[in-house]
Amino acid sequence: MNRFDRITAIWICLQSRKLVTAQQLAERFEVSIRTIYRDVRTLEEAGVPIVSEAGYGYSLVDGYRLPPVMFSPQEALSFVAAEKLMENFTDKALGAYHRSAMDKIRAVLKNNEKELLSRLENHIQINPLHAPINDSLPETLDILLRGISENKIVTVDYQSFHSDEPVERDIEPVGVFHEYEYWYVIGYCHLRRAYRQFRADRMHDIRLTDRNHTRKHGELEEYRKPMQTEVAKTEVVIEVKKDAHRYIKDRARHFGFVSERDKGEVIEMVFHIQDLMDGFPRWFLMFADKARIIKPGIVKKRIRELVGKMSENLE
């Protein structure tokens, strides 16, 4: 990106947010903070009313607006992919809001850009492996996001993996994230009196209350990292033949994959596993004829048990 394009992009970025830091701009445009300082100064000299708050960041004077936004053909085409993703990876309510926003964006496009979008939209298909949201709750993400933005408690009827019936939980949602084809929310759970992680498709009901959060919460990443490390995990090492490695690599991260090493005829793969009895062993059986367990012995024992039960069922 040349300097002119970068300064224009900074200008647009400043209008799209209430406050943006020099560090955020530097990371986004992959330049030094000193370069950002110079670019901002150039905008100020050109008459753009920028407010600089020491220790906080930059913002535009309230009420200042850019002229109508013009999109490049490449930017316009990216809208189609975004629309398909929103249709398939969010709930119906959020998808409807996005379609409404897209209609407003399309309205300012040139006729040739509208034609480009029309030609492309029937040539992109996205089919998720799982439904990321319970189909009976079309406003799940919408309610969770409102709970976060409005600091309101959300009540959910949640069925964990190990329970037979859903349990009512009052949670103060901190943030949502998409991982391994599912949506999750992290929030303070009043029942457990601790921060917990909930999977959206396991919610049987969800309601936004008028009760405010009882505490001040940090950003999402502050809670994700501790949750990823607080559960004790066991290191599992396997060796996989190279002709099978390419097929299992895509799903390996879902089962705790952390690293691998080429050993000539085989690939050594290392996993950090929480569920040694079901999740990993049952997945391993899919390609067990092309791989072997190096350690630990407990996983070998569990796989032998599963193979024995399979043999009995085939008699």
Rank of each mutant, 00 (worst) to 15 (best):
E150D: 14
H204E: 14
Y184W: 01
D135P: 07
I171V: 13
L43P: 05
Y56Q: 14
D201P: 06
R192A: 15
L208E: 08
N2K: 11
S59C: 14
V266T: 13
L144H: 02
I206Y: 05
C13P: 01
V270R: 14
Q15V: 02
L94V: 04
E235F: 05
I248K: 00
L116A: 10
R292C: 11
E265K: 12
R292G: 06
V258E: 13
T140W: 07
Y195D: 02
A252Q: 07
F284T: 06
L285F: 03
S118M: 12
E181K: 02
H190T: 06
M286K: 14
H272C: 00
Y58E: 11
A46C: 08
I248A: 00
I186M: 05
V20Q: 08
E172Q: 11
V299S: 10
D250M: 12
G147H: 01
A101M: 14
R302S: 10
R169E: 04
R224Q: 07
I171Q: 07
D91W: 10
G308W: 01
S100T: 03
E235W: 03
P68F: 03
L85M: 15
V108L: 04
L208P: 08
I293Q: 02
R193C: 12
R17N: 15
E239S: 13
I7N: 02
T35H: 00
E268M: 12
G47T: 02
I303D: 07
R169W: 00
I206D: 07
A46P: 04
P68C: 10
E268T: 14
C189A: 06
Q197S: 13
K233W: 02
S118E: 15
A232Y: 02
E113I: 04
N313L: 10
I143F: 11
E230L: 04
G264Y: 09
Y184M: 02
M86C: 15
V80A: 05
T90P: 08
E150Y: 03
R192M: 09
I293L: 06
E115M: 13
V307G: 01
S100G: 12
H98R: 13
E87K: 02
H254M: 05
F89S: 15
F287D: 06
I298E: 14
E268N: 10
V307K: 06
S32P: 00
D275F: 05
N112S: 15
L116N: 05
Y56I: 11
